[in-house]
Structures are given as structure tokens and as C-alpha cells.
């Protein structure tokens, strides 16, 4: 069996693959973790397929109300070129015919395969792409610091590595900032169903809450870095000026059917290539393996295990697929690539 070659910890949930090293985890006498037990309790009261259907109605209604009201774009989508964000571009274009702006952060580690996919998909769907590329002088110290140190709270680090948290923080801010500046009423993310609860799949962003969250994130950085990164965050004045214009965030993959193989198959028909197929050392982001390794060494668990365990628990992914994703070694060449680049 392929799972024989994996580094599976001794103690791991019998169902969802969360390890005994995961913060706050408790196992019952059957080897089920507290998160799985909670899900069993709550699934008796809630029906996921009804919930999903209701969210689709809500999105239909929202699109009906907002489509065409903005000057140029109906929605801005945070776009990495990966399968999930590529797929939501397809969904939003083909099912809703929205005027879409795809926005990509070039963090200097975007793989050539991902760049190619971004071009292929946005051409095929006739979507504008806006790429923002902060200079290496801003990116390098941010990644060097977060590679070496955990500057974010324990809760945040439960779900993502320090490197990813810093980078995604910037993505979210730039996307929202652009939405406000361009009066775009919707913001789309390709979060997988394991990344955020379905309850928040459609949510009007609240200026006060965003401002508080942003303040906490920015204050995690040391002063010198804060000055370098400041321009990527939302200026304080925006929270007043654009108070009435804060967009709705939507995460369509939380309520549309999610099947990795199906998504890949659909995208391949459009010319999208799976990074693993083009080059075994490839992924969308070439700092990812290093980010994972730093996190595993410091915390004893994989930064994606929360997301993947959620998907195993929801039967979106098999247990074996989850084990392979989480308990395989990080690609050594990718780790050295990122490490060396950060020295340059």
C-alpha cells in the first residue's frame, strides 16, 4: 500500500487524520478526535445539502441585485492559477456571466506553470487579469522573517504556516483595497470546502471587523517591515470613505459540488495543466514546500492538515488521499530552491 511510505505519526484520528500533535486535540476511546465527535453531534441537526442549495439561491439573488451596477467589474477574484481559483472563474463566467477582474499577487515564487495557466484560463474565459508584483526588497524580508519565526497567533498557525499567513494577508488586503477603489461589489475566493465554514460562504464584509483584523496582522510585523508592507494594506481613511461600499465576499466552492478530479478534468478541457503533470517538482507556489517544512519542524504538524482533515471528514476527499497529501515528505528540491532564493 502506498501509505506504507508515508511518515504517519503514531497517534492520529481514526477518521480525519488530525495528529496527536495538533493543538488542543483530544481522542475518545474509539480513537476519534474531538473535531470528528463534534461533527457527528452537529450533523444530527443540520442538513448540508439543504444548506448548500440555500446558498446557491442566495448567490443567485445577490447576482441578480448587483450584476451590472458597478462601473466596470461585477466581481474581483483572487487568482493564483491553481485549480480551485481557476474553477471559480469558470463557474462565475459560465453560470453567471459576470464581468470579472482576476487579481494575482506575484510573490516572486509563482511557478512558470501557474503563470501559463493564468494566461490560458483568462484568455479562454475572456477575463482581465491584474498582476501586482511587490519588489523583492519587500518580499524577501517578509519571507525570511516568517521562515525563521512565528509572528502570528497560535490560532492562526493552526491553519496555515507563517509564510502563507503573511502572503495571504497581503492578497486579501490588496484584493479588497482594489474592490473599494474600483467600486466592485463582489469579491470571490477559491477557498476549498475545508478552508472556511459554509456559514460564511456569502458574507458582506464589515469595515470595523476588517480594520481590527488588519491592525492585528500589521502589528505582528516588526517596524521596519511594517513600513515596507504598509502600502499593500487598506489605508485607515478607506474605512470611512468607502464605508458604504464594502463588498460581499463569496466562496463558491463551499456550496457548489467539490470534486478534485472533476475540477481538474473540466479545467484540462480548457488547456489548464496540472502542475504535477508538467514537472514533478512543480506546484503553483515555489515557496510552499519550504513553508510547510518550516512549520512542521517548529510545530510538529503539517500546516494544511486542518483543511485536509475537514475535507476527509466531509467525505470530499478519501482518507488515503488525505494521508498522502499530509504525510508525504516535502519535495527536497523545492525546499532548497526557496531556501537558496531567499539568500540571494
Amino acid at each position: 500500500m502506498i501509505t506504507d511510505q508515508l511518515n504517519i505519526p503514531k497517534q492520529i484520528c481514526k477518521r480525519c487524520i488530525l495528529p496527536g500533535t495538533f493543538p488542543g486535540i483530544k481522542f475518545n476511546e474509539n480513537g476519534l478526535c474531538n473535531h470528528c465527535q463534534k461533527q457527528i453531534d452537529s450533523s444530527q441537526t443540520s442538513n448540508t445539502s439543504t444548506k448548500k442549495r440555500n446558498f446557491r439561491y442566495r448567490l443567485d439573488a445577490l447576482v441578480h441585485d448587483l450584476k451590472g451596477t458597478a462601473p466596470v467589474y461585477d466581481i474581483i477574484v483572487a487568482y493564483s492559477g491553481g485549480k480551485d481559483s481557476s474553477y471559480i472563474l469558470k463557474l462565475l463566467k459560465e453560470q453567471y456571466n459576470l464581468r470579472i477582474l482576476a487579481m494575482t499577487l506575484d510573490n516572486h515564487f509563482v511557478s512558470p506553470a501557474a503563470i501559463e495557466n493564468i494566461k490560458v484560463i483568462t484568455d479562454k474565459l475572456a477575463i482581465d487579469t491584474l498582476i501586482i508584483r511587490p519588489p523583492w526588497a519587500a518580499i524577501k524580508p517578509m519571507f525570511n522573517l516568517t521562515a525563521q519565526k512565528d509572528i502570528f497567533s497560535k490560532t492562526t498557525l493552526m491553519r496555515a504556516s507563517s509564510i502563507c499567513t503573511a502572503c495571504i494577508g497581503i492578497v486579501k488586503s490588496i484584493v479588497l483595497k482594489t474592490a473599494l477603489e474600483m467600486s466592485i461589489p463582489l469579491v470571490g475566493y477559491g477557498w476549498s470546502p475545508g478552508q472556511a465554514p459554509i456559514q460564511s460562504a456569502i458574507l458582506k464584509t464589515n469595515p470595523q471587523l476588517i480594520q481590527t483584523n488588519q491592525k492585528v496582522l500589521i502589528n505582528s510585523f516588526p517596524l521596519e517591515l511594517k513600513e515596507k508592507l504598509n502600502q499593500y494594506f487598506i489605508p485607515d481613511s478607506y474605512f470611512k470613505t468607502f464605508k458604504e461600499k464594502f463588498p460581499h465576499n463569496i466562496h463558491p466552492l463551499a456550496f457548489f459540488d467539490y470534486d478534485e478530479d472533476h475540477i481538474k478534468k473540466e479545467l484540462k478541457k480548457m488547456g489548464w495543466k496540472s502542475p504535477e503533470d508538467t514537472d514533478s517538482n512543480s506546484s503553483n507556489c515555489r515557496i510552499n514546500a519550504y513553508a510547510n517544512q518550516c512549520h512542521i519542524l517548529r510545530h510538529g504538524f503539517h500546516p494544511y492538515v486542518w483543511e485536509i482533515a475537514n475535507m476527509v471528514r466531509q467525505n470530499i476527499m478519501t482518507r488515503e488521499q488525505g494521508l498522502i497529501k499530509i504525510y508525504s515528505d516535502q519535495n527536497k528540491e523545492m525546499v532548497s530552491y526557496a531556501k537558496e532564493k531567499l539568500q540571494q
Binding site: 443540520s46 490560532t155 492562526t156 491553519r159 456559514q199 460564511s200 471587523l209 483584523n213 491592525k215
Partner: peptide, 21 residues
């Protein structure tokens, strides 16, 4: 919760999920 880093932006969503259920 927010300023002390107890709950982050994803945590807020989980808190809402909990309150609703």
C-alpha cells in the same frame, strides 16, 4: 478576542458557525 490574537478572521467565521448551531 481579536486584539489578543485569540480569534483571527477565519476564527470569527467559526465562532459564527458555532453561535448559529
Amino acid at each position: 478576542f481579536l486584539e489578543e490574537g485569540i480569534i483571527d478572521s477565519t476564527g470569527v467565521l467559526e465562532l459564527i458557525e458555532f453561535l448559529e448551531e
